[in-house]
Design a protein around this nucleic acid. Structure first.
Lengths: 283, 283
DNA sequence: CGCCTAGTTGAGGTAAGTCAATTCACGTGG
DNA sequence: CCACGTGAATTGACTTACCTCAACTAGGCG
């Protein structure tokens, strides 16, 4: 087990989402909302809108409320935690750029990384709802976030129930990812585990335009992988070497290359049912 | 790894919640709702009300809507799944009595149990919100549930936003449990893992009046434990023997006895922060 | 009675952990 | 400019926690 975190020695920052996805919501905003603020501006600055928009078709009011949530913009550097385990009544954040991770620390000094967050993801949503944080959140790279006060969020729910439903959807999706993670640690062996994890990460990043079937920029260290997958860093290294030598995937220099995507997917028994999303589910 | 599930050879059914908890919501219902239906009746038949009531103080309207959700009552026996992995647009359920478990099956035949559900818990909430189920749900004992159609649930959210918030809270609490489970599998060794799991289960059951610091009735088999904790049934057996011989906890005859609660809690490094709940958080 | 499932125990194998040494890239300060 | 420190990655040698296979007991039930 790796003990504490170490700052990655190089940071990759190509976190700009491509504007060619979620076309229905894009069209919607263009039609209804274009004169309020620059329409591209809204999409660019609000990866969250794209995400929630994929679930419910948001009305103008809801978009306004959502826009109003993005208040104070803040920057955090690697090593400075946003939220600490046990902290009470802190704010939630929406990740604009960069990577973060949520983790729990045991008294033995071991760290379990729960999940990594990429642009558009909520940070600390669960903690706000529960009023106490059961985990910590730290940046992996330098990150940009917008702060959302707990009160504002709960207030927004009361005024726009559809928004509450949309956020419930986002939370459910997060939970599904944690569950998949649990399954990985619970019953896959190290090789399949690592392979599956990289494929999953790739799929998530592809959804927000930050990855392809060829690969993706990845600021994680092998220590991050180790603590996320419940393996030792040494063993992660060996497994990565194995996968590289088999011509499946290469993890090197802050970049993950899928050398043979299909073979890797078969090797890892990868299917991404729960990540699929076929347009707005709530009319 | 144990392969498929086996029906437990004896079922324990003392699932009646004690009416001495969540006093504020009990009082509330007595004052405002007593002449509509028998007041005890509502509490008895709706463990969910007690649970949600612990988070938001529900108004009369909200109670009505919540009551309206409890439509068709159904019974399932062990072995008959309520929800199947991959199933689309099924209903959700609220567990009235008995135990259930949610699990995922891998193509290798391995099973990972995500979580166990006890009376008052939602079954398949996440699946309804995501419109597709990423997991299956099966009864552990004979269970009684009430069915909630997806449409009704989403409709109820639109009409009573506070209810949506309360359900978001319940979902967050579930997620916190999955996260704790993840941590257990990810970085605790087998002995601590089993000990921690039993303590946690005990704490959850105590919250709904089905357990104490002395122990609780537990219909699970060692195979259930194995598949939940990512261990082999054989190893679970050895660990249970160890814990019994150390005078910490005894798992036998469908009953878990805490032989030395404090020592066990120390051994397992157990703290239940996220289960604590100090009254309604949303006025 | 015999079958089935749950639980129990032993013997031996293996995946993954620990400890330790080495290399490499980068940054810093003399 | 080089010396030095540090964090990340790499590799080898050894240990161990947990798994697998297998045999056996005991209770429940048709």
């Amino acid at each position: 087990m790796a003990f504490l975190d170490h700052a990655p020695h190089r940071l990759s920052e190509n976190t700009r989402p491509q504007p060619d996805r979620n076309q229905s919501i894009v069209r919607f905003i263009r039609q209804n909302f274009a004169n309020e603020r620059g329409r591209e501006d809204i999409i660019e600055s609000q990866p969250l809108v794209r995400k929630l928009g994929a679930f419910v078709a948001l009305s103008e009011t809801e978009l306004c409320v959502l826009d109003g949530l993005h208040k104070r913009r803040r920057t955090f550097v690697s090593g400075r935690d946003l939220v600490l385990q046990g902290q009470l009544d802190h704010a939630a954040y929406i990740l604009i750029s960069g990577w973060a991770c949520s983790y729990k620390l045991l008294r033995t000094g071991q760290r379990q990384i729960i999940d990594f967050q990429v642009p558009g993801d909520f940070l600390g949503l669960r903690s706000v709802v529960l009023h106490i944080s059961d985990h910590s959140i730290m940046p992996v790279t330098k990150i940009e976030v917008t702060e959302v006060k707990a009160v504002h969020l709960l207030d927004a729910f009361a005024r726009t129930p559809r928004l509450a439903t949309a956020v419930l959807w986002a939370a459910s999706r997060d939970e599904a990812m944690v569950v998949e993670h649990l399954v990985g640690i619970g019953c896959r062996d190290a090789k399949v585990r690592v392979a599956h994890f990289l494929l999953e990460l790739g799929a998530r990043l592809t959804l927000v335009g930050m990855g392809t079937k060829t690969g993706f920029a990845c600021p994680l260290t092998q220590y991050h992988l180790a603590d996320a997958l419940g393996l030792s860093a040494v063993h992660v290294n060996r497994v990565l070497r194995y996968l590289r030598e088999q011509g499946l995937v290469t993890f090197r220099d802050d970049y993950v290359t899928f050398d043979n995507y299909d073979l890797l997917a078969e090797f890892a028994d990868f299917e991404l049912a729960y990540l699929d999303q076929a347009g707005p589910l709530l009319p």
